[in-house]
Design a binder for these strands. Structure first.
Lengths: 321, 321
DNA sequence: TTGAAAGCGCTAACAT
DNA sequence: ATGTTAGCGCTTTCAA
């Protein structure tokens, strides 16, 4: 690996001049510049970022903390982050906390060692105080935290849209198979769902399930006990797919007897029969916007929209009328 | 942020002593050590990795190049890599090439700037010469390349197992709905599939499809034209799910009339009706093993198994007899 | 317009 | 057992 000295020697100038060339900073004669540039190419010189950062103290690197990677929401958001980071010249270090606070703290230390310029938090842990100690720009993803800028999916809107669709399509006996109700996202969806129902003098019942590994038995039991059910809102496409399969076994026709709405617009939603109507979160956009907010903070630009709310889309397919 | 000088001052020792303490290297008196450790805690001191790396030239960081992130294979492998890297004290920088060679080269430069100690390549591009120029340890994932250690899934075995299962369950008219046949993985699966068929004096026909967005029409046409088909091997669970849905529309019963085997053991496979029999790749293990191989190379340990072949598992569910 | 030199925070060889 | 110091590769101030 060649270094700045090698380039200086070959171009017959000082290292200061080389530095000026690679940073496009300060005065440098046109001809000198060309000389230096030729030397750079000849030596295949790439500046050492560690030396640079050691001096300048900005690493052009951000940290991302997610509770999982193998979950369609997170890796799609990650793709959005990565895209925008790449565009803006930032590197991404990712921490997969696995919902383990100690693991998360360990990563936080790594991040400090690496002088990260900013942090994107998508975890559910409660070590915000540790984040604040870092004294670097912070943006929270999919969770609104006091005093921290955030980018969240419009979960209230998602619930509202789902309720609207079911009611407008004639549903009267509605159930919400939702995710774990401790989660804010789940609470928000419930809120929005209830909001529309209330506006129309309706109510619904609820069952709490896991997003990824829902307890089928709870679904079966509910449907058996409530044969009049004609509208079902599910907090994930996975739940919705299981519901579809249960309805099939019960001899209910979808969407004729019962209408079903899923959440996430995953691949699943057009691979099951009938194809799922579902609420689509703009995950890529969430990632991009989070990175954009963080960039504003890192580069001391004004952040106009401190709490960005990314809209959802209702994708109508075959499981609703 | 405090630095080593601050710690030295507070503990009334020299920076060299502090360095010895934090690196656990060289002689240092017990009492002095305690003094230093107290100072470290008091100042919340975390060594600056940039200064360290600048001197030592090992960054304890690896690069990972993948063509996508939003694909179950890659993000699961990534989880395995990340897990093992974390255990061994390595950081991970990830490059999402989006199958774009220029993007990949840009990342490669970043990697050089950041002194990465090793590189894990999971892309399909053909810029190996660029990789070699880096002169750092390399491990290829899911693709055997001459002169580079690799970790691959046993695709030949996967095809073989699938054929064996179909034939042993009585299938005679077999079709292989495979992925794009330019891909080595697809070729290998075909090879293994044919191998078993040949051993039993059977053959099969083939249709090339995309893994993620298969052309449904091709499936429909084939099944219409070949009503005698009784065994179907699909190169992804997505393809298999579409096949299931087509068979349903054609009034064929699965597994009674036709048996179907998928690939990947994704969530999908137990969300469709009937649940899919499928070949499961040990993605997490592939990631871990790749990181392990790379670690051997980076730390100049002997790499016993240069080309690791990770076995696959046949997961029997309801789509086969 | 260019160069000399200090210094970013750390490690390690050498001296004590 | 501990301290002094050069130097890793770069940026930037100051002087020329």
């Amino acid at each position: 690996m060649s270094n700045i000295k090698d380039v200086a020697k070959l171009a017959n100038v000082s290292v200061a001049t080389v530095s000026r060339v690679i940073n496009n900073k300060g005065y440098v004669n046109k001809e000198t510049r060309i000389l230096v540039e030729e030397a750079i190419i000849k030596l295949n010189y790439i500046p050492n970022e560690f030396a640079r950062t050691l001096y300048k103290k900005v690493s052009k690197t951000i940290g991302v903390i997610f509770p999982h990677l193998s979950n369609s929401f997170y890796y799609n958001v990650l793709e959005g982050i990565e895209e925008e980071a790449f565009n803006k010249g930032y590197k991404v270090m990712i921490c997969n906390s696995r919902e383990d606070a100690s693991r998360e703290e360990e990563y936080l230390k790594q991040f400090v060692k690496y002088n990260i310029d900013g942090l994107l938090i998508g975890s559910n842990s409660n070590i915000q105080s540790k984040y604040k100690e870092l004294n670097i720009p912070l943006v929270s993803i999919d969770r609104k935290i006091d005093g921290i800028p955030s980018v969240t999916s419009d979960n209230v809107g998602g619930g509202y849209r789902a309720a609207k669709k079911l009611v407008e399509s004639g549903c009267q006996n509605i159930v919400h198979f939702r995710g774990p109700s401790i989660l804010l996202t789940v609470k928000d969806r419930s809120l929005g769902f209830d909001l529309y129902l209330k506006e129309n003098n309706l109510t619904c019942t609820r069952v709490d399930l896991a997003f990824i590994d829902p307890e089928v038995q709870l679904i079966t039991n509910y449907l058996n006990d409530h044969p009049k059910t004609d509208g079902i809102f599910c907090d994930s496409d996975i739940i919705a797919s299981l519901v579809l399969s249960e309805l099939y076994h019960l001899g209910k026709r979808v969407p004729k007897d019962v209408q079903v709405i899923g959440y996430d617009n995953t691949l699943l939603s057009h691979l099951v029969t009938p194809k799922l109507t579902t609420i689509s979160q703009r995950m890529f956009e969430i990632g991009k916007e989070a990175m954009l907010s963080l960039k504003c903070l890192m580069e001391k630009e004004e952040l106009i929209d401190v709490h960005k709310l990314i809209p959802v889309d209702l994708i109508e397919r075959e499981s609703t009328k």
